[in-house]
Nucleic acid binder design. Structure first.
Lengths: 176, 176
DNA sequence: CCGATACTAGACAGATCTGTCTGGTATCGT
DNA sequence: ACGATACCAGACAGATCTGTCTAGTATCGG
């Protein structure tokens, strides 16, 4: 049911990620999704609503991907970093959707930015849990570091700098 | 001489950095700079020209700032990281202008993106030189790591995450 | 003094943006 | 069968975007 909404959200996800949020207009999304304008505004009350749906869906999707990574403790942490490095080497990789969105929404007190904060907080909690599970000392500063390395990997990967990505992964594993 | 051009470039620097490039229009820049539209297009042949001038000027400015950091080898490296962490804690800090611009220009084969690549290559070379000066082994992967940490620090700082910033600085110093 | 250059104000064109509205068709639950 | 919901096509309003143009003033080097 409601395949028009799915089509719009899928198209928006693809275009927003590949070309940026502000550069992609509603007209472009509905044309690519083959949906009438009235239908679009029936499902989303504004463009910002669509942007939030895009990020919220991406959030859920990434949670699903990382939740599915097997293992425990440091093994699982290493597997997650390996997956991140792998994704960041892919041809369609254009950086982290959340960091890219944050760059387009400079005001920190904004729904989009709050979602970005939530996403990073979730990732940090995930890392901290694995460190605790592995009985590593100082899980808090180490979780902060892993979050910063994750940010750096997505940035460097988006710019095509695989050397920096690999350096980040190696260091993260050596330091936790 | 030509204070109108300086006024435009200064205003554009302020607005582009604080609010993003695509969200700030030419009309806004010329109004804030108190400059006639014809004068703007006399000095800059297009908005893209202004964007490139903004980034090129910022590049030169940052080179000047880091060139002025005293010391040699690892001391100088530590001082540069300390300055970066300090700047990233400031109230007006909104991340790295180059990474923010890259997020708004997804096409890698673009003058803006080439400038971003140049900037990161310069920073990497600077780091590598300091490592060589200090006779550290493996300067290349370590320079890659320092570049990635720099990216992460500017991102985390722009998002107000000082814990991650501090973790990045500590790790970088511990690992080189 | 004169020609080039820098500057002012603002109208204008043409495109594009978000969002609304009209008007009609199809599907689905009850 | 019927009302609500989902969908279509596309016009429209009003704002905003980049870039050009007219028309005139001020400054400055030679």
């Amino acid at each position: 049911m409601s395949s028009a909404r799915d089509r719009v959200l899928g198209t928006a996800t693809r275009l927003f990620y590949a070309e940026g949020i502000h550069t992609v207009g509603v007209d472009r999304v509905i044309a690519d999704a083959s949906v009438a304008k009235a239908t679009f505004y029936h499902h989303f009350k504004s463009k910002e609503d669509l942007v939030l749906a895009y990020l919220a869906t991406e959030y859920e999707r990434q949670r699903g991907v990382l939740d599915a990574v097997p293992g425990t403790g440091l093994d699982r942490l290493a597997a997650i970093l390996a997956k991140l490095a792998d994704l960041s080497a892919g041809p369609g990789f254009r950086g982290c959707p959340f960091l890219n969105a944050a760059a387009e929404y400079p005001d920190a007190d904004t729904p989009v930015r709050h979602l970005v904060d939530d996403y990073r907080a979730w990732y940090r909690t995930l890392m901290r849990g694995l460190l605790v599970e592995a009985d590593r000392p100082d899980p808090d500063p180490k979780a902060d570091l892993l979050l910063l390395v994750r940010d750096g990997i997505t940035v460097a990967g988006g710019l095509g700098d695989q050397a920096a990505v690999q350096a980040g992964v190696r260091t993260a594993l050596a330091v936790v």
